[in-house]
């Protein structure tokens, strides 16, 4: 009896250790730093050193200073536009993917996933070389004679940020949409046709509504990734393409005001959580009627 208990000892310890490790990773490396940020956001800075006494001055500054709120809203709008564009481009790709079978489907999926394996910076540089004043896009337009001097429409401004983010984040939108399209039973499309619907009617009345859960999660996914990005606006945004992420970055870097940066990060985190919740809520609302 006691013998078997002694044998069981180490075996019983293993799941405990595994559970502990499973909690340590998110608690220690995600939640603790975030809690630290929350605490920091209530401190202030005086002559370059942090004053550890609680204050809400950082939040007051964000809501009263005429600089921050407009950039905040503009960034939210920009990321919403990125999310919309991504979904708009990703949907036909995902739909096309569902019509493929076997090898060709696999090949296209791999092609879509390859960019995810590449360095983010390299991808931004690649898009930059296309968009720049002397970039491929402008040179191509000049060569075809459509314009006679390089267009500045997409050169180091918010439009460039919009385009670059869209291009970089499309793969993230394709997968959830593809999966939700795959889950629609073929019998439903048959039933629609059987009841007299044309292919276009079946698409709009059956396929699109039933793919909404995936489309919405794709949108919130892209939105979250875009709003947290400071590298892309930094590299293709120039002077006018200022976003919220860049402001946070500058608070930690050039301005060296960690408490204010922390307060802005907390606000950003709130928006991200809201976006995820909203996406999830709409998703369950549309997917719930099964």
């Amino acid at each position: 009896m006691s013998d078997s208990a002694a044998h069981a000892g180490p075996h019983r310890l293993t799941p405990w250790l595994a559970t502990l490790a499973a909690y340590i990773v998110p608690l220690g490396f995600v939640l603790a730093p975030m809690a630290l940020f929350l605490v920091y956001s209530f401190f202030s800075v005086d002559h370059g050193s942090i004053v550890f006494s609680p204050t809400i001055s950082n939040y007051v500054r964000f809501f009263t200073d005429p600089v921050f709120l407009p950039i905040f809203w503009r960034t939210c709008l920009l990321c919403l536009a990125v999310a919309l564009l991504c979904v708009l481009f990703a949907f036909p790709v995902a739909y096309f993917l569902t019509t493929l079978r076997g090898r060709s489907r696999y090949m296209l999926l791999v092609l879509l996933l390859v960019p995810l394996l590449m360095s983010y910076v390299i991808k931004i540089y690649a898009v930059r070389s296309i968009l720049g004043g002397n970039g491929m896009l402008n040179r191509a337009l000049l060569a075809t004679g459509l314009i006679d001097k390089p267009s500045m429409l997409f050169v180091f401004n918010l439009n460039a940020v919009l385009l670059t983010l869209t291009v970089l984040l499309i793969p993230f939108a394709v997968l959830p949409i593809f999966l939700s399209l795959e889950r629609i039973p073929k019998a439903l499309r048959h039933a629609s046709a059987d009841l007299g619907a044309t292919n276009a009617q079946t698409f709009w009345r059956v396929t699109v509504p039933l793919s909404l859960p995936g489309t919405l999660s794709a949108m919130s996914f892209v939105f979250v990734l875009a709003i947290g990005d400071f590298l892309t606006p930094q590299m293709v945004g120039g002077q006018s393409g200022f976003t919220f992420g860049r402001i946070i970055y500058s608070q930690f870097g050039t301005a060296f005001n960690w408490p204010f940066g922390a307060a802005l990060s907390v606000i950003l985190a709130a928006v991200v959580i809201l976006a995820i919740r909203l996406g999830g809520r709409l998703e369950s609302k549309h997917g719930g009627a099964k």
Partner: peptide
Amino acid sequence: NRRPFNTVFQDYALFPH
């Protein structure tokens, strides 16, 4: 969609949405 027939499918194939 032009055939004047309608089908009751094995697992009904009702539109869930």
